[in-house]
Each structure stands twice: as C-alpha cells, then as structure tokens.
Simulated scan of single mutants.
Amino acid sequence: MMKSKSLYHGHRFPAAVVSCAVRWHFRFQLSLRDIQELLFERDVVVSHETVRRWCDKFGARFAHRVKAARCKPGSNWHLDEMFVTLRGEAYLLWRAVDEHGAELDILLQKRRDKAAAKRFFKHVLQSCPVPRKIVTDQLRSYPAAKAEIPELAGVKHVFVKAAARVNNRAKNSHQPTRERERRMRGFRDPKRTQDFLSSFGLIRQHFALKRHLLRASLYRKQLAARFAAWHAFTELSQNPSTAF
C-alpha cells in the first residue's frame, strides 16, 4: 500500500513553521510583514510573499477541517449584509451566523436584490441543514428569495428593525471583519477577499473563546483542547514551539 503524500510535500520549511504562520495571519491582526518579522526573530528567514502563498494554499484547507470538526450549528439563522469597498467599488458581504454567533457562511456579491439573496440562501444550504427559524432585517429581498426555495418555504421568518439592535447576533459578527479591513487598509480583489474572509472567520472563531464567561483554569483547558485540534487539522506531529 502506497503511503499518501504529506500535506506539506515539496515545501522547504517544516510543517510547524507553515502552520504557525497561517494561524497567526488568520487569528491575529497581523500583516504579512509582521509575520515575516516574528519568524525572523525565531531564526526563520522567509519573505512576506512566501507567507502569503502559504495562507492562500493552506488557509482554506485548514478552515474546511475546522468547520467539519466543530459542533452541529444551531437551528436559527441570523442573516445580515454589510458594505465593503474594493478599489473604490461598493460590494455587499452577506453573512449568516447561528444563535450562538458561530459563522455559518459568507458570500461577497455586487447586488442586494432577490437574485443575490437567493444565491446566498443556496450557498448556506450547501453546508448547513435547513434551519428552524430565520432572522433578518426588513430587506424585501429576503422573503422574496426565500419563497422560491422549496427547503426554506415553510421555515419561520422573523423580521427585525436594524435600528432596534434586535439582530445584534448578526450585526456583531461584522466587527472582526471591519477591524481586519482597517488593518489591511481595505480589501482589493473580490475573489481574494472572498477566499480570505471564508477562512478568516472560521479559524478566528476556533480560538476565540468567550473568555469572560470562563474561569481561568477552564479557559486554559479549553484553549489547550483547541490547540490540540488545530495540530490534528494541520497534521503536526510535534509541538510547534520545538520547531523554532
């Protein structure tokens, strides 16, 4: 029986270095050059372009494994959309989260009409079961698109006023994206933005525990479990700290 190739086959740097660089990029507000400097401090000489290629290649793979391994999503969808500017052109980032704030899916689109809402519903259904309830603002595109999707036609739909802050679960989920947008001085290419944000939300949330609700000992225990899971996702056979 032939042994399958390593995930990092053909890469000059060890898996621990690549995994650590990718995690830093999606978990923290660090630029590619920041990561280059942190690696240099650890005697790893690599260019920021190499870090970018690592993130492009491995980010989506790791995020997919994180999503596959996490708990079953909640039965309530909270949907909202936010404007982002890419090279001076306005786009809409559609986002779905469950009642616990876990990101279900995102989709970057040019429009805010029924066709865009329908496309987003179908996109979320590809990876999530049919919900029990959908919560949205009063955008008319949502009910019009929902009525044309058989799986969602009978699902309860709750409308809230955006100004009433009732849909804070979805509104608050935009904050990390806004922070990252400012740190990166804006997004640029639509495809790269979609790819980055699809991985960013999942990897960030994997480590972003609700620390204020946990005792210090329990927080450390849960964080250690998240790191152990990350090592499995990234196929690490040793503690990354020993690789530097």
Rank of each mutant, 00 (worst) to 15 (best):
I149R: 10
A225N: 14
T193M: 05
W77V: 00
D56F: 05
Y219I: 07
A145E: 01
K67Q: 12
R42G: 05
K57T: 14
D43F: 06
F120K: 08
A228L: 08
A162M: 00
D98V: 06
F28H: 06
F28T: 00
K118G: 12
K191P: 03
H212F: 13
R211M: 00
L236D: 05
R215I: 00
Y91V: 01
D189P: 00
F83D: 14
A90H: 10
K5W: 03
P190L: 09
K161M: 08
V45M: 09
R188G: 03
L79G: 02
R12G: 05
A147G: 04
Q205S: 09
N172R: 15
A115C: 01
D105P: 07
K110W: 11
V158L: 15
L79I: 15
D195R: 15
Q126C: 05
H174P: 01
G101R: 03
L152R: 11
R183T: 06
Q36E: 14
H212E: 14
P176H: 04
A15M: 00
C71Y: 06
F120W: 03
A68E: 13
S217M: 04
E41C: 12
L152W: 08
A224T: 12
H157G: 10
R169C: 01
T242W: 01
F120S: 04
A117Q: 09
V44S: 06
Y8H: 05
V46Y: 08
A164V: 08
V84K: 08
P240V: 12
P129N: 11
R183S: 13
K161T: 07
V17L: 02
V135D: 06
T85R: 13
K114A: 07
A144S: 11
A229K: 02
W94H: 08
R87N: 15
E181V: 06
V124Y: 03
W94K: 05
L92T: 04
R70A: 07
W77H: 03
K5M: 06
R119N: 10
K146Q: 15
R180M: 10
A164I: 01
L202Y: 02
P150Y: 07
T193L: 06
R61Q: 15
G101P: 08
A153T: 07
G59P: 13
S127F: 04
P176T: 06
R220G: 05
M2I: 12
G154I: 03
S237N: 15
S75G: 07
F58Q: 03
K118P: 03
H11F: 09
G88C: 10
R180I: 00
W77C: 01
E179I: 13
A243T: 09
N168W: 03
L202S: 01
R42A: 11
